[in-house]
Design a protein around this nucleic acid. Structure first.
Lengths: 211, 211
DNA sequence: AGGATAGTACCGACTGGTTGGTATGTTTGT
DNA sequence: ACAAACATACCAACCAGTCGGTACTATCCT
């Protein structure tokens, strides 16, 4: 047996993974440190060895979340970017986002969105992290938006439209959590994506890109 | 002193009032019963005399919230309803909603929206109440929408548009909580109100109603 | 080589404070 | 007198965070 590597996932990573999952499902306040440890298969001693506090773990989770979302965005543009025009890239990005958001397996709850509501007035550092997640996602989307607008020679407030996109997703997720009806996500987000394409000046043909 | 009436606000009402306020600001989980009692100036014994549990109070708060929102909606339509056409009523309703939502004194946090995120997976009864609040608000808005669509002889999915309206508000409030920037609310909600009016088939003149 | 030293990762019993809820008694309106 | 409306003291469970200790490895001194 010549070192048949069996990577021993380090405790911090296991804790972050479990934290993201539990915080998303039960919220920051309602998730006890013990539950995170149990889910990660790690002792409490190890937890506080690697993280100064529960809040510190939450911050790390937020970073992880942003990393994941950035990865998803990058993964998309890498696939669709080959030779396609900017409007098509934007349109397919939005269409794929809908499918991604509506899939209960991968999504159905946004970490910063869930967290910021509870801790907005009590944990300034965590609020700031949540805001950063939104800002980063905003910027990534705005890039696609600006390219499309430039291609169409239209002058639009890409900042406002990007905020609308992020906000629509957050709102749709809340309505989903209340109603348990995934169709809200699809309905709301696709309405807004139509509106955005229209503001950019896309033709009807461009709006209806293949999946 | 011939009974110079000084209505002795009953304890349940005081508790509901304080509950709505605290739950909105700190969330359901992070708000201790003691804090609600202190804010209401009521003893803990009185609390559990009137409410079976913390969850029962939260349900009552949710009802109170719905009542308030319904009152606001009714108050509006009573003012604007005199002889005005349905499209104008809808347009001014949405415009006034923006001002209402963006005013930190009266709003900046929605009780069912804040609550449902935390308790969606742990308190089914509370989740159902939150959903009811959304449904009721949805129905009230859909009425305005249907009247306007009927007036314009346009066929639109008023259910979808009403969900979009509610969702947009929820999303805008999350982004506001993260960024502390009220302009997100104004920006997002007015974009969607433009979209809705456009779907209804309103003229540009109708879209730009006086405040 | 090998023993002392030090640093890192980890364990789990424990602590001090908090929480939702209760038990028991007192006041108040009728 | 009797019940509803309160008040106070209390409890068991729970929670974030601590602390003394162990196992393992790396480094250094002789």
């Amino acid at each position: 047996m010549p070192k048949t590597a069996e990577k021993p996932v380090p405790a911090p990573e296991k804790l972050i993974f479990a934290g993201v999952d539990l915080f998303r499902r039960h919220g920051y306040v309602a998730t006890p440190v013990d539950a995170i440890c149990a889910a990660a298969g790690v002792s409490k001693g190890a937890f506080f060895h690697h993280f100064a506090s529960k809040e510190a773990l939450a911050e790390a989770c937020m970073d992880k979340w942003d990393e994941r979302m950035a990865g998803w965005d990058a993964g998309h543009t890498a696939t669709a970017g080959d030779g396609a025009d900017a409007v098509t890239i934007l349109a397919t990005y939005m269409r794929r986002s809908i499918a991604f958001l509506a899939d209960p397996k991968t999504f159905a709850s946004c970490l910063p969105g869930t967290t910021v509501q509870e801790i907005s007035e009590s944990h300034p550092a965590l609020r700031e992290r949540s805001n950063q997640c939104f800002t980063k996602a905003h910027e990534r989307f705005q890039t696609l938006l600006a390219a499309a607008a430039n291609e169409k020679q239209t002058t639009v407030d890409t900042t406002a439209l990007a905020r609308l996109w992020i906000g629509t997703i957050q709102g749709a997720l809340i309505l989903f959590k209340a109603s348990r009806d995934v169709s809200v996500i699809e309905s709301n987000v696709s309405h807004v994506s139509q509106y955005i394409l229209q503001q950019i000046g896309a033709t009807d043909a461009e709006k209806a890109t293949e999946s």
